[in-house]
Design a protein around this nucleic acid. Structure first.
Lengths: 125, 125
DNA sequence: CGCCATACTTACCTTTTGGTGGGTAACCCA
DNA sequence: TGGGTTACCCACCAAAAGGTAAGTATGGCG
């Protein structure tokens, strides 16, 4: 469990791995739309068509959506399945790696909410 | 606890808050050096001087370090304490908000390691 | 006086990211 | 023949992020 993992920052070598792996991981989640895409795929609990994602990810344009999906695919977070039809049909779904993001996303959301409340408090003073 | 939190994606309104809060939170952690900085401050378990950070965050330059620290300060993750001395002494430390990042960082690290191993496996084939 | 240390600031440049507005291929249907 | 659908690609542009190399302020010390 993550809770039990030590902050390996004491040992400089372990620390470097810590920092590297973590920044690498964050790098995968960077990009204006990725979290939202992942969230939508979590919410759908199933694969989504390109056009469906386009509808659900509010404000995104095609180029950006494609770009981010490509990166997510390259990084092993989503799979892309093409159905040889006309008109074309392409579905995107979370991989195991993508699904494994669940707990960390959940913790991040906890923090995000905490932060949200805290910001609201600050604003009220 | 985060583990018990549902994926609130079913309800479109809740989902929007979910996505917003999370992307906001991620936005705070974006930037090439922030995670490493936060990690260093976690590892130090104490405040660090600017020069100490400069040494510990390998590869960063002054401008970037200052920029990222400023943003982290603005976002309430770190505090900046100036000691009116010559030569100057400025210390940076995690706020409560910063320390609250612990669990999510830990989960992210878990995922990062998982991902790392998985990537290594893929590369081996 | 001139040099040192520390924590910056500034001007300038390159790279990356995000965004707009047009194509294009494929087949079905009228 | 020509329009409709879907999932793209491409040329081009604007803004943001990242990086380099220089300078600045302060006071103690020799």
């Amino acid at each position: 469990m993550a809770q039990e993992r030590d902050w390996k920052c004491g040992d400089p070598h372990q620390h470097l791995i810590w920092a590297e792996a973590t920044t690498d991981a964050l790098r995968v989640l960077e990009g204006k739309w990725k979290i939202v895409i992942i969230c939508q795929l979590f919410g759908a609990k199933d694969a989504l068509r390109f056009s469906e994602l386009e509808r659900r990810v509010e404000g995104v344009n095609q180029k950006m959506l494609i770009q981010q999906l490509k990166e997510l695919e390259k990084d092993g977070i989503v799979t892309r399945t093409v159905y040889p039809q006309v008109p074309p049909k392409v579905e995107y779904a979370l991989t195991e790696m993508g699904k494994a993001l669940g707990p960390s996303m959940a913790e991040l959301i906890d923090w995000a909410y905490k932060r949200r409340d805290w910001m609201a408090e600050q604003a009220a003073t």
